[in-house]
Design a protein around this nucleic acid. Structure first.
Lengths: 187, 187
DNA sequence: TACTACATGTAAACGGTTACATGATTGC
DNA sequence: GCAATCATGTAACCGTTTACATGTAGTA
């Protein structure tokens, strides 16, 4: 298996919903994972070329040589395998490029539900640690920066950290509940 | 003025709190803006070199030629000017590299309080629009994806968007209140 | 006719990350 | 003496963004 970027696999995952052109892929990603992982044509077209070269996808309509004709690509078996393999790889929760957790949860139908729940629990744990760290920083600011011109500006950033992380913790709980319910439905 | 990256100005802003070495800058950024803007030595040292070359900073201790001696840099008047100029430039709220709004609010003591409030109000407006968009997407999913295997996985990502944005809206309100209080204290 | 959306593609530039090299200082 | 931390620096690499080039199809 070739080592490839997350963007490579997100394109592969989009193709896994059904055959698409580069243009369709862009629109599709904008409507689905676009809020937490962005792609542009400068990445899509070269990646599509590599995918065909490496047999992760095949051209189903359009001519390979023509430059302005719509070309539709279909994922291959090898492509599906590589995509599913990538899905179960560990997540970098701090990737500044985009939200890997959300991307992999979005494609969760190709992964055991229990694994998605486990990921959410792992992430919730990290959030709780982070929240404790933020609260410690807040106390430090209140001790060392009280009366300082910087006080309010430091508090603004710390409160952002606390409030968004608190929301993520609640989101984890909601998602875990949602997936547990589905786990129950299946049996 | 030279066009420079946000990282350049964040380093300049850190230096604006007081003279520091490259090592200090790294530690300082990790403790302050590190949660929403990361830097590493591969950026810091070359940038510091440029800063001295362009007169944004000067070396106050240590020899320019030595390779393993601690070097402390101090921001110049030109550096302060460039930093303040950058601070008032429009923000790209969608920069995936880091959170420009948080960075510029953090350095808010060098900007009129009213301008920081205005920025928060502008951002809150964008959040409200985004929330409306998310709620529309949620309705679309409920209409078109009900009973679909993808339903829960799409809901997970949409709910993340809704819940984190809701937290950001509340954060904006809290920050606006905080800064208004300070505006009152000044008079 | 002109505008908009559809559609593909490349090259250069940009910025950030990683790996590596080197050495000084502090505390056990 | 050894480990950890302090400390500076470069080069290669990687992935994303931007600018540019080109052309088609539908519609007002």
């Amino acid at each position: 298996m070739v080592k490839a970027s997350n963007t490579f696999y997100i394109i592969l995952g989009t193709l896994n919903f059904g055959p698409k052109s580069g243009y369709d892929i862009k629109k599709g990603i904008e409507r689905s994972t676009g809020e937490f992982w962005k792609v542009n044509y400068g990445q899509i077209y070269p990646i599509l070329k590599t995918m065909v070269g490496e047999d992760y996808a095949v051209l189903v309509t359009g001519n390979e040589e023509s430059k302005h004709e719509r070309k539709v690509y279909k994922i291959t078996e090898k492509g599906v395998e590589a995509f599913c393999e990538w899905l179960i790889q560990p997540i970098n929760f701090n990737n500044p490029q985009g939200n890997e957790l959300l991307v992999k949860l979005f494609f969760g139908q190709h992964v055991p539900i229990k694994d998605s729940i486990l990921r959410l629990k792992e992430y919730k744990g990290k959030c709780l640690n982070y929240l404790a760290k933020m609260e410690k920083i807040q106390r430090e600011i209140e001790e060392h920066l009280a009366e300082d011109i910087q006080f309010d500006y430091s508090m603004i950033t710390v409160r952002h950290g606390q409030m968004t992380i608190q929301a993520k913790i609640e989101w984890c709980d909601e998602c875990i509940e949602r997936l547990k319910r589905r786990l129950g439905d299946e049996q």
